[in-house]
């Protein structure tokens, strides 16, 4: 074997060693649960006049004072359940939903740390007609995670 082959061999070796371990940060999931409201009588889209929403673990309430048929709310990635209290305008009945789930840490890289992924979402309790988990995926593309029938 000639000298230049050895030079090429070791040049490639050290360049390869230097480059192989790099990694990117990429966040694939969101920590928001998307609710859709359905009229349990007609099974049509339900529109709520929401005054505010209180989320346990979050110090302040979401003051909306608006009409919604869908809403995205933060889900607590620190504990395995999140309680939502929907305060509607006067004349409508307030309700609450408690969701449970597993939290799986996904390592992004040494620099980026972890991203907590919400998995196996389920309904712990509610006080409306029905609450159904329709999608367990948490990302921007998903339109609805939980359907609320009332």
């Amino acid at each position: 074997m000639k000298k230049k082959q050895l030079i090429i061999f070791f040049a490639i070796l050290f360049i390869g060693v230097a480059c192989i371990d790099e990694s990117d940060c990429s966040y694939e999931t969101t920590r928001e649960v998307k609710f859709s409201f359905v009229d349990s009588g007609t099974l049509q889209t339900d529109t709520l006049q929401i005054d505010s929403i209180v989320i346990v673990g979050f110090d302040s309430a979401y003051y909306l004072n608006s009409t919604r048929s869908k809403i995205s709310l933060p889900i607590n990635p620190i504990v395995n359940e999140t309680s939502y209290f929907f305060n509607l305008v006067v004349g409508e009945i307030d309700f609450s939903i408690v969701l449970g789930y597993e939290i799986m840490p996904r390592v992004l890289s040494e620099e980026c740390g972890i991203e907590p992924e919400i998995k196996q979402l389920y309904v712990i309790s509610h006080d409306v007609d029905s609450v159904v988990v329709v999608n367990n995926t948490f990302n921007e593309e998903v339109e609805t995670n939980v359907k609320v029938y009332r």
């Binding site: 933060p74 607590n76 620190i78 907590p116």
Partner: peptide, 17 residues
């Protein structure tokens, strides 16, 4: 994995898995 995670809304957690 030992990790610390700080959520902008709900606070921090330290855990081992």
């Amino acid at each position: 994995l030992d990790f610390n995670y700080t959520d902008p809304i709900f606070g921090s957690i330290s855990e081992s898995r």
